[in-house]
Design a protein around this nucleic acid. Structure first.
Length: 1034
RNA sequence: GCUCGAGUGGUGGAAUUGGUAGACACGCAAGACUUAAAAUCUUGUGCCCAUUAGGGCGUGCGGGUUCAAGUCCCGCCUCGAGUACCA
């Protein structure tokens, strides 16, 4: 009886949908398990075989956990706001909501292309998602709560005393009572004010001040402006100086923007990485991104050379009016400072520069400001700088230290100034060497004549009170002294920047914010969501406002849906929208309670489901989504909305499935005008050749080209062509014999010849769907496009036309995309699922090769045949034999072990071995096959359900019980000992396991084969490891 | 440059704690069935030498530890990812 996978899969998918088989129970007595896939963006291109890889793995795990008795939450939804839909809307005028819906649900786009729809594609693979919990970030009932969370962040500040976010009201109370003197908050605001000051300010002034404390705040910030996309981008949305999406240039611009004070959480984001089970690589990326460094912040007093002589001023020098603050991670090297470098943009530069140096400094500043980020990045090696003419006083030695500017110092990091210690830092050393500045050595017995000594294992010398101390102790003491003398203090610095949260785009969440006299206020909860308005175009307005500037009545009028007017006014609403990561920072919470209209998630539900137990997705979100959702999780925890501090406990990052592109080698005819051609003829007369008066040479050549067929060479010719063993002439001869009438075609009425010096073989992409292995299906290829109809193929001697292959990214433009749909139609979803897992370890990148799928498909057919003879389903009720039980139980054991260590590829091989063994044993016994169905069902759920029901079960296999292996069936009485000589295995010897070491040795030494390999020598030593090996050392 | 990861047959990969390297598949070759093809089945398949028996070499390269190394240690090479003057 045939394995009709199409019908079986269809039937069971319907059954699961109708019976809501995978609905998760919200408050179950069962233990919970939360398996989540990273939120997909529903693009119009649909799924290719790389996308479901992670979904299959998570689905296998989810199904396995159900069999293990867990209540599994395994939801799916869409991150449906985003740039591609909006770019498409700008091009076509279609509302992004419409295209987004089509991309998810299927339909046709404006050009008439059929869009299969994400959902339909997913359904065909047989995932066990609880679709009743689907969310879409662009649905108002979802983004209502994104806006609500924004409001909570807006109404919070970060209290460093309690080390958590608190309500802004608690801060206001403090201000009212004692001003900000005792407030220890995450803020850049460093002035102090009293309660009196506070209470005397008007509302606007108070609100402006609170902006410095809110966890999301409006400020003028330097942002990454991308003119091509018409929006600002966050640091993690930029790769190599250009936008991650589209690769457009990015420039720095000062704009009024909403930002998220993620820096308040820097330390916790860093520290809590230790509590999650992620790969070291992702953790490292986050640690780097957060970039913690500890050291000291130190103030250097500026010594004004104009009014002082070269003698050193005293401590009470009245000229100490300006200070340069620097941050250093090596306070222990304070005595090695020989100059100070400021960033060219540093605000003190103009104040301290002497008149003699003014011109040079200004020229340098100008040159630096003209350099783009990219130039600065690419010019790392060139050393440049300029002396300001000013000096500072060394904290301890009181020496004069020159102040320079140089663009190797970044304005945006630390204080934009460094104390340069050339003996201990290579960049400082290079700078000093270049400008002939002194390089004092403060490391005992270290040579610094050729390079700086940056290792931290030196002993400090020439450093007054730090002499003879190792780095660690010297650092501690230096900080102590600096603090004692009031010259600075110990400090921790982070690279992490606050995240820009505004986007000048249409297709995103509107802010729940309106403006009264330019002061932002948040909208009352009863008016949420602020729904995205209709606009007639998705472009910025003529005066440069974001697209929402085009919306009519975009004001906070306080009219409730029921028509009740609560007395609003024409207060303008915020025109920016939120970035892509807003909705995805908390979506995993919404799945617990997707339809709740009163809360973003109900307390009892989040208390039951807790955080995600297993999160599967790509590694590309390391610094974006994975950092932001950790930040929001901690924030919501601080406000006691959720009971955990990390969103994703265990994460696996699946590797990319690469495309396997195919190439044809096309002969490129290059034509030129023939000898008989005379440009004179071109000028009107009709002598030897018919040349239309208005034709150019190019026209004639093009016309001749059109007559010529496409000629393709098989791979071996190309290889020979590349290494020179096939000459142009030989190629040409091949063509002449393949296209005998070539001269005729070429010439016809035109005088055109082939320019044999310029012809060449070039690689063009061939659609991988027209290939059978590496062989081109010539007929299908000819039919694929009209101009290939009469293409000529110069093939291998056996008639095959072989294509070149290369592994690269899977993409439409490379004609190497494989969609899951075609494979599901041809082999079935179960085959696809098993095959994608079989390909290799989940985390690894691997090339897609469709050929291997037949092996997996064959395995399922073989499995089917265990249950069926030619005509019908047939099963035996006999007692299984020892061998059959052993085969089954070792499989049960290995499958469980493998799945639990997240090895998804090896179980498929294990199933194959088991089916091969049972086939060899001709086993069709119920007791064996019934358990086999269960353990296979996470991988191949449709066939498992079908066979399970044929075995007489009336309930879905989903909630069957994963069998326990019985160790008794696996224990052996004998072991085939590999007998090695000097570690090289020579033969096997079957011995009972009951033998002692001595007995084994005796048996081995008595064996005649041993004697042969010993060849008369006496063994020096015999190592016997019972149940493992025997090694004889000769 | 720095950080992290990976290198095993023609291909994808297996070998979980140092103990038979190459499981399981693909591909290839030979054969069976068939008018033929597909499907299916059987056998072989790391490389080299040898008719066989057998021998030698083999997990990127070079060393080391060990009775025994794909696995542990040291040094290097190549590829991939992240990051980029972070003081």
């Amino acid at each position: 009886m045939q394995y009709d996978f199409n019908k079986i899969e269809d039937d069971w998918q319907k059954y699961w949908a109708n019976n809501k088989t995978f609905a998760a129970e919200d408050n179950s007595v069962k233990p919970k398990f939360y398996v989540l896939d990273m939120f997909p963006y529903p693009s119009g291109a649909g799924l290719h075989v790389g996308h479901p890889l992670g979904y299959i793995a998570s689905d296998v795990y989810a199904r396995y956990k159900r069999l293990e008795g867990y209540n599994v939450l395994h939801p799916m939804g869409y991150d449906s706001f985003g740039l591609p839909a909006e770019q498409y809307a700008i091009q076509t005028g279609q509302h992004p909501a419409v295209t987004t819906k089509t991309n998810i649900e299927g339909g046709t786009d404006k050009d008439g292309n059929v869009i299969p729809g994400y959902r339909k594609q997913l359904d065909k693979i047989g995932f066990s998602f609880d679709w009743d919990r689907e969310v879409r970030t662009s649905n108002p009932n979802y983004y209502k709560w994104t806006q609500w969370i924004f409001k909570q962040i807006f109404n919070s500040w970060y209290n460093k005393e309690s080390d958590k976010a608190e309500s802004i009201d608690s801060l206001i109370t403090k201000f009212e009572i004692e001003g900000n003197v005792n407030v220890n908050a995450a803020t850049d605001f460093d002035e102090t004010f009293s309660a009196n000051d506070w209470n005397n300010w008007n509302e606007e002034e108070q609100l402006q001040l609170l902006m410095n404390y809110r966890l999301t705040y409006l400020s003028d910030t330097w942002v990454n402006w991308c003119p091509a996309l018409g929006t600002v981008l966050a640091n993690d949305e930029i790769k190599d100086g250009v936008s991650e999406r589209g690769g457009h240039p990015v420039e720095q611009k000062l704009m009024r923007q909403w930002s998220m004070r993620i820096t308040a959480y820097a330390e916790r984001l860093l520290k809590d990485l230790d509590t999650v089970d992620w790969t070291d690589s992702i953790k490292d990326i986050q640690r780097n991104w957060i970039g913690k460094s500890t050291g000291a912040s130190v103030q250097f007093a500026v010594f004004n050379s104009q009014s002082a002589n070269n003698n050193f001023p005293t401590d009470d020098c009245e000229l100490k009016t300006e200070f340069i603050e620097v941050f250093t991670t090596r306070p222990d090297t304070i005595f090695g400072v020989s100059f100070i470098v400021l960033a060219p943009e540093h605000e003190l530069v103009s104040k301290i520069t002497t008149t003699e140096q003014k011109d040079k400094i200004e020229a340098y500043q100008k040159a630096a400001s003209l350099k783009s980020e990219r130039d600065r990045m690419s010019n790392v090696k060139t050393i440049s700088g300029e002396f300001t003419g000013a000096y500072v006083i060394h904290l301890f030695t009181k020496n004069k230290i020159p102040v320079w500017i140089g663009d190797y110092v970044l304005a945006s990091y630390g204080t934009g100034a460094v104390m340069s210690v050339p003996c201990g830092d290579q960049r400082d050393w290079d700078f000093a060497n270049h400008f002939k500045i002194a390089i004092p050595n403060i490391f005992k017995d270290k040579d610094i004549s050729e390079a700086a000594y940056a290792e931290k294992d030196a002993v400090i010398t020439n450093s007054d009170f730090l002499n003879d101390l190792p780095v660690k102790k010297a650092t501690k003491l230096a900080i102590y002294e600096i603090e004692q003398r009031g010259l600075g203090k110990g400090k921790t610095q982070y690279k992490l920047r606050n995240a820009v949260f505004s986007r000048q785009r249409y297709w995103g969440e509107p802010f729940p914010v309106y403006y009264k006299d330019d002061v932002p206020y948040v909208i009352d909860d009863e008016f949420l969501p602020v729904e995205l308005p209709e606009v007639e175009k998705y472009l910025p307005t003529e005066d440069g406002k974001p697209p929402l500037g085009r919306a009519k009545n975009w004001t906070y009028d306080k009219v409730l849906p029921n028509g009740e007017d609560l007395g609003g006014a024409d207060w303008g609403l915020e025109l920016n929208t939120m970035p892509g990561w807003a909705g995805s920072s908390w979506y995993f919470l919404r799945y617990m309670d997707p339809t709740n209209d009163n809360e973003f998630v109900a307390k009892d539900k989040v208390n039951y489901w807790q955080n995600v137990d297993l999160y599967i997705g790509g590694a590309e979100h390391a610094t974006g989504h994975l950092l932001y959702s950790r930040f929001w999780t901690k924030f919501l925890y601080d406000l006691s909305y959720i009971p955990f501090i990390e969103p994703f406990k265990k994460m696996i990052n699946q590797g990319m499935i690469q495309g396997n592109s195919a190439f044809l080698y096309r002969f490129d005819f290059t034509l030129k005008m023939g000898d008989k051609y005379n440009p004179e003829n071109h000028l009107g007369s009709e002598k030897d050749y018919k040349i239309a008066r208005d034709e150019t040479e190019a026209d004639i050549i093009y016309r001749a080209m059109e007559r010529l067929p496409e000629v393709f060479f098989s791979k071996s010719y190309f290889d020979n062509y590349l290494d020179g063993s096939l000459t142009q002439e030989e190629i040409f001869n091949k063509i002449i014999s393949a296209v005998p009438n070539i001269t005729e075609l070429l010439t016809k009425d035109d005088d055109v010849v082939i320019d044999t010096n310029k012809t060449k073989l070039t690689m063009i992409y061939a659609d991988i769907n027209l290939l059978d292995g590496d062989k081109l299906n010539i007929d299908e290829f000819r039919n694929s496009r009209e101009y290939y109809n009469d293409a000529i193929f110069i093939s291998e001697e056996n008639g095959d036309h072989i294509c070149g292959r290369e592994v690269e990214k899977m993409s439409k433009s490379k004609y190497n995309v494989q969609t899951p749909d075609e494979l599901v139609d041809k082999y079935g979803a179960d085959t696809l699922r098993c095959y994608e897992m079989f390909l290799g370890p989940l985390e690894q990148h691997k090339p897609w090769d469709v050929q291997g799928i037949t092996g997996v498909h064959g395995f399922l057919k073989k499995l089917w045949r265990l249950f069926h003879n030619e005509e019908a389903f047939t099963i035996s009720e006999e007692e299984p034999t020892k061998e059959e039980l052993k085969s089954l139980h070792k499989t049960i054991k290995k499958i469980k072990e493998d799945i639990e260590r997240f090895a998804f590829n090896t179980p498929v091989s294990t199933f194959m071995i088991c089916v091969n063994e049972l086939t060899a044993l001709k086993c069709n016994k119920r007791e064996i096959l019934s358990d086999l169905c269960i353990i296979l069902s996470p991988y191949a759920p449709h066939i498992a359900e079908e066979l399970w029901s044929k075995l007489g079960n009336t309930e879905s296999i989903t909630y069957a019980v994963f069998p326990k292996h019985n160790e008794e069936y696996l224990t052996e009485s004998n072991h085939k000992y590999p007998i090695s000589f000097n570690g090289k295995m020579k033969f096997l010897l079957d011995l009972p396991l009951t033998l002692s070491k001595e007995e084994i040795e005796k048996e081995v030494m008595a064996n005649e084969q041993t004697a042969k390999y010993l060849a008369g020598n006496t063994p020096k030593k015999v190592i016997v490891v019972p149940n493992k090996i025997v090694n004889i050392v000769v």
